[in-house]
Write a protein that binds this DNA or RNA. Structure first.
Lengths: 228, 228
DNA sequence: ACTACTAAATAGTATTACTATTAACTTTGT
DNA sequence: ACAAAGTTAATAGTAATACTATTTAGTAGT
């Protein structure tokens, strides 16, 4: 598996960019420096002008690669989903019991820091921090329908669908598998955000490993409890 | 109770505005027209310039009342919480059993459209729509710590704390009452948003009354299921 | 009638997000 | 070898946005 990962890299779809950033030195620098920078100053304050200054290039050059800064944010998000999906595929392989598959999956998604990150040019910490702080701005935008149409949410949707199917298989009578999965996924990021900024809204602390317990209890509880 | 409401109006704290909007004709028009307009064109597209044009006044005049458009959004949010809290207080009064109190509360927050709205100048539908579409931008902003400091999130925090206490009383051994409550509150808005824009991520449809069943099952399931 | 205060309009500025065009450099075919 | 074709990025913009400083008009109290 580690062997495999050496040659494997998440390749976000062409929908995210105008010019493939992996194809040039500047493109690669936009991706790697952009992540650090966007996480540092926040999505609103982040502009292509500022990034260009930092890269010693120009605003227009950055616009050659990405249509706007939101597409760049979604590009990062895509990398996250592709990476997590890759791990999930291998992690669940050959696990026979459906119930243990779901719980293994919950372990993996709630403790992503325990999984192998092999993208030397991108910092996992920066990526996770970015997702946590900007979660509300990723899939909750005024451009939602247009961006959805363009396929920019495909990775997130596919990932959720995969988990919902695990639930549908192990608990065929539970009526809300998709709702339950999207609830869990949202809470992974929202509760971390609350721990950092609105601690009175959560019982968890920063990087609290009890997030796994909370999510597992939530999901398993919902599945075992009768619905109307 | 209906008698009482005739003389009662949610009064957001002074932290939200520079000049009390209820104190002048223009101020009141900013609130009522602003809600409709912001909901119509979305928070990003909404500007004080455009609102001023619509009100046949000037940008600068609007800025006399609100520091920026985010404060106006939070002002609306405050009205929502104050109104819901008012109903909760009366609705739970004299209900003896703690367990039924929690379930009554869940009924109320999941079906706010069933509660009495008595603000003739503000449309409940517009307010709920605004909250649903802009939820991600309300408490997940780059200004979070500053706004928190200014007390702009006090209503939301107080409301959640109230519900957490119900849980802590009925289920004193459950370790995540605050996390569970903020999960439920988030899902009220996020799942509606998904129903509208990313339907594959939820099993609910627009205005689906099963949101009550989903949330009750989720909360009660979590409380009955053992944690680590 | 004079002062004090409130309300709202005028006229700005700095920044932002984004685009059109041009220049420089590489690669490729003959 | 060398011109055509393609790639990459710089120059130089624009329209819109968020926000402010200053001025004018109106109203209330003494």
């Amino acid at each position: 598996m580690l062997e495999l990962m050496r040659n494997w890299r998440p390749q976000p779809s062409t929908a995210f960019y105008k010019k493939q950033p992996e194809s040039s030195e500047l493109g690669r620098r936009i991706i790697s420096e952009g992540l650090i920078f966007m996480q540092e100053i926040g999505f609103e304050a982040f502009t292509f002008k500022k990034l260009a200054d930092r890269l010693q290039t120009t605003e227009a050059s950055v616009y050659r690669y990405f249509e706007n800064k939101h597409h760049l944010l979604l590009y990062y998000m895509s990398i996250y989903w592709l990476w997590l999906e890759y791990h999930l595929t291998f992690g669940l392989h050959n696990l026979p019991e459906k119930d243990s598959k779901l719980n293994k999956a919950l372990d993996m998604i709630t403790r992503p820091d325990q999984l192998n990150w092999a993208l030397s040019d991108l910092s996992f910490d920066h990526l996770l921090n970015l997702v946590v702080t900007e979660w509300g701005k990723i899939y909750f935008t005024s451009q939602i329908d247009k961006e959805e149409q363009a396929g920019l949410f495909a990775d997130y949707k596919r990932f959720c669908k995969r988990l919902s199917k695990l639930i549908a298989q192990s608990h065929p009578h539970y009526p809300y598998p998709n709702t339950l999965v999207s609830t869990a996924m949202n809470m992974l990021f929202v509760q971390r955000f609350y721990a950092d900024h609105l601690p009175s809204l959560t019982d968890l602390t920063q990087n609290d490993i009890r997030i796994t317990d909370f999510i597992k209890n939530l999901v398993n509880g919902a599945l075992q409890n009768p619905t109307a």
